[in-house]
């Protein structure tokens, strides 16, 4: 009897969580900037990377992450098409202090930084191209 109950609960939890994720994955929302700036934390952890003139898309990835590959393709595509936008990818496993400082909880997570290196928006899960373009547009407006 408990077996049937657990079976029903498991199915309910899986469908509920899956539908929730389908809704929120890749959706950009406003996020508080780290102090002094998020970019400052990023360069402290990975000094060799460069910021975009207009905006920087910072992607956190890890080895066991299927949607990271899709996200990489989408963000690189946007960076190639949009002037002054740069895409940088950070291996979360190699930079756990940064992951904790910026409170990154899963991969892929994409941060949108404005020209001054302030974090404006972030999305967890793989975003679509139009979501990234819309995020860049609103990030430009916010910092202008």
């Amino acid at each position: 009897m408990t077996g049937f109950l657990i079976l029903a609960l498991a199915a309910l939890i899986a469908v509920g969580f899956g539908l929730h994720r389908r809704r929120v994955d890749g959706r950009f929302s406003a996020h508080a900037d780290a102090s002094p700036t998020t970019w400052d934390h990023v360069t402290r952890a990975a000094p060799s990377i460069e910021a975009g003139e207009r905006a920087t898309l910072v992607q956190f990835s890890s080895a066991f992450c299927a949607p990271c590959r899709t996200t990489r393709v989408v963000l690189a595509d946007v960076a190639a098409q949009e002037d002054g936008v740069r895409h940088v990818e950070i291996d979360a496993e190699q930079h756990l202090d940064l992951v904790r400082a910026l409170d990154v909880r899963r991969t892929p997570t994409t941060l949108v930084l404005d020209a001054a290196g302030h974090e404006v928006l972030r999305a967890a899960g793989a975003p679509h191209k139009d979501q990234v373009l819309a995020a860049l547009a609103s990030a430009g407006k916010a910092s202008a």
Binding site: A14, R21, S62, E93, R105, R106
Partner: peptide
């Protein structure tokens, strides 16, 4: 079920946490 129905890998997400 999450993997079969939604293509979502729960274990992979727990990995970073």
């Amino acid at each position: 079920l999450l993997n079969a129905v939604f293509g979502l890998c729960l274990g992979c997400e727990m990995y970073l946490l």
